[in-house]
Design a protein around this nucleic acid. Structure first.
Lengths: 141, 141
DNA sequence: TTTGTTGTAACCTTTTTGATTACAACGTTA
DNA sequence: TAACGTTGTAATCAAAAAGGTTACAACAAA
């Protein structure tokens, strides 16, 4: 089981807007051609990124642009904006038996550790900005 | 989107076996009553834990037992044994456009960072052993 | 042999993801 | 203002996966 691709699609989307934004009108169809998904998926992604204050989208005339400094957008920001994980990363079985000492305390002993693990992952995503990714782009081309 | 509950169910299962193993025959039905899932789900969990060398299960007569020191079983071990994530945690859209500079390089610029984030999470799980959890159990009861 | 349990296949339901169609709303331009 | 291309968004669909459930052969012990 893997997390939704919304996150990587969102990162890809932002990079396309950055790279082509100066020279082309970057429409949902244009981005979709690079990511290789349906344009509607990109439009939904753009709405999420817009709600997070990262991009502007021109209804009618068309075209997306980045409205925030790439140094100020971390992978964690994109991850959160994409909304592929709501709240807790780990999933608990519902209603463990409260009459059993283990079932009664399973959350008490596990929750904090799982939260730590999730925080460690998110903290790592926070270290990387889109500006870092852009810097790596040409070098690997 | 959350990870499968297989992981937390597996932890719960191991704790039940530990707590009741001395005094009762811990069957899949017994564990299922604490976790509050179907006994077959527990049997499948037990097979995974058995394959990982953590438990022994008596076919026929019934009952599961732990066959490894709890100090030597980390949450990461259980996480891996439960198999709720195969390989990569993050999911990529398939076949990004290789003719686009972004599509062509998206893996090159993202893979390492995502692997770092996943490793940070797993590393945190590695720090906690089942013995730690057991130590926390009575204190919170 | 009887009883209770495991091991496992098979099937079903539910949920979720992403694909897709459809279309009204919108901006630009001719 | 009319035509055109694009966005915003709802609705629907198919595919995948998770967990639930039934079923039953294999097995161990009394």
């Amino acid at each position: 089981m893997q997390l939704s691709s919304r996150f990587t699609v969102a990162v890809h989307t932002l990079l396309v807007i950055h790279v082509f934004g100066k020279t082309e009108k970057v429409t949902s169809e244009f981005i979709a051609a690079s990511v290789n998904v349906n344009p509607v998926v990109i439009r939904r992604t753009l709405q999420s990124l817009k709600a997070a204050g990262m991009v502007g989208v021109k209804a009618g005339s068309g075209g997306a642009s980045i409205v925030k400094d790439l140094h100020d957008i971390s992978l964690l920001d994109v991850y959160r904006a994409a909304g592929c994980v709501e709240g807790e990363l780990f999933h608990f079985h519902e209603t463990p038996n409260p009459d059993c000492p283990v079932g009664h305390n399973i959350h008490a002993v596990l929750d904090a550790h799982l939260a730590d693990a999730q925080a460690a992952m998110e903290n790592e995503l926070k270290k990387v900005t889109l500006a870092d990714l852009v810097a790596e782009l040409p070098a690997k081309a």
